[in-house]
Every structure is written in C-alpha cells, then in structure tokens.
Design a protein around this nucleic acid. Sequence first.
DNA 1: CTAGGTGCAAAAGGTTTGCGGTTAA
DNA 2: TTAACCGCAAACCTTTTGCACCTAG
Lengths: 152, 152
Amino acid sequence: MELTTEAKEQLDTALSVSGLRSTRQREHIYKVLLTRRDHPSADEVYARAKQEMPSISLATVYNCLDTLVECGLVKRLNYERESSRYCPNDGDHAHFMDEATGRVYDIALPEDFEKVVAKVLPDGFKANKVKLSFTGYAPVDLESNRVALSAK
Amino acid sequence: MELTTEAKEQLDTALSVSGLRSTRQREHIYKVLLTRRDHPSADEVYARAKQEMPSISLATVYNCLDTLVECGLVKRLNYERESSRYCPNDGDHAHFMDEATGRVYDIALPEDFEKVVAKVLPDGFKANKVKLSFTGYAPVDLESNRVALSAK
DNA sequence: CTAGGTGCAAAAGGTTTGCGGTTAA
DNA sequence: TTAACCGCAAACCTTTTGCACCTAG
C-alpha cells in the first residue's frame, strides 16, 4: 500500500495517459513488483499480492500485469516456453537467466547500444522493440538481489 | 522425403552424436523446415508434414522438433506468449517480427557481434546462449521469402 | 532382440474470458 | 451515475504425458 509518491505519480499518469483508471489492485501489483526487484511469474506475483490483499484474484493479477505492460511501466519477459515473468521497466536493459538457479538478472546496456544494434538491421527495417537476452551461468557469490549492473 | 544428401548427413551425424536414432519422422520434419525458409509453429509444421506423411501425429511433431532443437539443427523462437516457432539453425542470426504481418525474418549478425555483446556482461557472467530479437516494421516490398541478410 | 520412437487420447498448465456485482471518476 | 474494473469459475489452447504398439540398429 505504501508506494513512494513518486512511483504513485508515475503510475497514475501512465494509466491516465492511456485512459485507464487507477485502482487499488493495480497500485498493489505495481508495488509488489517494485518491492523485491526480481522477476516473478504471474503466479508468484499472485502469491505475494495476496499477503496484503487476500481477496485479489489470479485473473485480476493477470489483468493488472497486462495493463502495466501496456502502459510501459512493466516489462514482460519470456524464456522459451516457461511462464512469463515480470519486472518494473527502468529503462532499457537486457536479461540474463542463470541456468543453475533459474534466477534472472538485469543487465545494464551502454547508451550506444541501440545504435550498435541498429547497424545490424538491413535497410527498410524499423525496430520498435529490441530484446537481448542471455542464458548461462551467473557468479555464485552474487548478493541475493537481482539487479546486476556494471556494464563494462 | 528428398533431403539433400548433405542435409541428411548433417541430420544423421547430429542425431548419432547425441545417441539418437534417425527415423522417417525426424527426417521428414527436418525436410519440412528446410523446404520453406519461414518460421512455422508446431501446428503449421504438423499441417505441412501431414501432406506427405498423413499418419504422423502432432505429438510426434512436437517430439521431433524438440529433438532437432536439442541436436542444434533447429532453433525454437518465442515471441511473447505466442506459440513457439521453428527454423533451421544456419549459424547465429537474430529475428525480426513484422508487427503488420506476423512474419519473422532472419537477420544476419556480423562476426564480431558476440564480442560486442560480451562487453555488456558484468564480470563473472558466462553466457551460453545469446538471443537478439526485434519487433517492428519490415519493408513492404520484400520478396515473400524470409531470409533477409545484408547486415550493413 | 530391445531400447528408443511413434501414435493416440487424455491431462496438464498457463492464460483468457464471460458474467454478475463493485467502484473510481 | 456509469463505464471501467474486479472476483469467480469455466473455457481455451498449446504443449506434455502415459501407454501399447512398432522399428532402427
């Protein structure tokens, strides 16, 4: 329930820009995603959301997540056929899935990344979205939180 | 049924390397993917496969595709929550999905791409797989086949 | 000969939908 | 006030699985 006022404003404006309402459920789901910066599945979001809002339904969690993705506040990521995972959208970043643990880490991208990548596209192709994702092994001694940055 | 002998050898060796058998069905599925170089779903592969092999089952198509992916002969790609699509694996390439048509194009990658991308990873991360995918608009006048190359 | 593969049909599992009741603006 | 949203349960759809039969090596 205690989103920072900053986050709440971001949410409210993003919703109203899209002609959507701010609701307790949407706010709560957004807060859940901001609280632990990992990459939970809809089911996991549901479990966490119910702790403070026991009456929320799984369908509503899906709906809220979809809404937040549409507003651009949240990213949905898919690894192979696994169920979708969600994270707050803090600007462009890539994802790295550790094969050993299943954890997903955020990987910061250099500012020029978009340009580097644009060179790859043949003439006439216009990309709206670029997704870069890795699978492999993460350092074992990484502190349990997820947001690995330090692009070198 | 008429895989080039080259393709058949590739298939047989890839399978036997993994301790797997060469079967009529696996060969046929591989041929189906090589014939039209697009990116069909399992269902579409099933439809095409049945034309020459009416007795094949959908489960077998899934099994064969999984097997070919494990052998490294085929790539499976996933866009959002859509059903998986498959294409022959001709070395590293990215994918571009045209939002207007749903078609997927192969995008060639420069040789140094792996190195460019490795710089993005923080110390200690070891990537086994890198996936790069785009969503956007492809040139409308593109000949109907899919393999767009010409990385510039 | 026999381990591995196939075909069928049923089950699983994640996600979506329809509907009656609720709520934000 | 009322269109948008929520909760519930059922439906959906892609993918997987169990099992009896078949076949490549």
